[in-house]
Write a protein that binds this DNA or RNA. Structure first.
Lengths: 140, 140
DNA sequence: ACATATGTTAGTATTATGCTAATCAACTAT
DNA sequence: ATAGTTGATTAGCATAATACTAACATATGT
């Protein structure tokens, strides 16, 4: 059962990790029903997604609470960094902020972070993305 | 049966369209067995892919020969243009030509061509991609 | 016309995604 | 403390994309 390479994410797994991390601004861990609602799917669908993420050691669960593991947080940080780099670039090109965000979401989780960092340098090492969020580490 | 929106491609469908177009440098139409070999899959797998592309009116088949329809050629052109724009950008950033090509292949078929064209302008309207191929129309 | 090539269908498998219905666990209010 | 409610989990099912083998059909060449 449960497949897809250990460091690779599907689009839904990506979305799931983002919701887990950003639930209620890092205070209490999210629970299945909230996650399901946030992702617009039913709890069993989330359950399946969570099994896969657990299998990849990206999340941990305890009495209904769901948190990212160290590995999960690293992956989250990488995705967000890349997402913001792409957004910044697209907006630089004249794409609207919403379109930039939407496009970036489609592949931020599949780009090599080495490539992303080279893009960042090319952009002149901007500190913030178009939404004003920090691009580099510490970014929440 | 056969699903996925009429203008959207999956990664394999994208690969299939590229092989069909580039078979033997546009002389004779490709056939199933060649296509299967080029894609490193067995003929029935290609058959399934072709059913989907036929269903989307992107290819036509006649006595074993497979060609792109007008719609198929348009989609091909769009993908190639976007692919080359992305490659150009990545190489500009310092990514190796092979990595640039590999990364671009992962999402050239899912980026909006409006976004791609804005990127092209930002890059200063280069004429050729890093492989020396024409980026814009007429590109073969 | 026959033998070989190639194409096509049928049927199966796996993975990702999603659902409903049923069960199980945990908390709340009396 | 227990009945009821709520929430989590499992079981079972469905569909789409990808891929296979085996079987069958149709060409093509000699």
């Amino acid at each position: 059962m449960y497949s897809n390479a250990n460091h690779t994410l599907t689009k839904k797994e990506r979305a799931c990790i983002l919701v887990i991390k950003n639930s209620d601004r890092n205070s209490f861990p999210i629970r299945v029903s909230e996650l399901a609602e946030a992702m617009h799917v039913k709890p069993p669908t989330v359950e399946e997604l969570l099994h896969r993420l657990e299998n990849k050691k990206m999340i941990e669960r305890n009495r209904g609470m769901i948190i990212l593991t160290e590995k999960g947080r690293e992956i989250y940080s990488k995705i967000i960094m890349i997402h913001r780099i792409l957004e910044t670039f697209f907006v630089d090109c004249g794409v609207s902020i919403d379109d930039a965000c939407a496009e970036a979401s489609n592949f931020d989780y599949m780009i090599n972070d080495t490539t992303a960092k080279l893009i960042l340098i090319k952009l002149g090492n901007p500190v913030n993305c178009p939404h004003g969020m920090k691009i580099q580490e510490g970014s929440d």
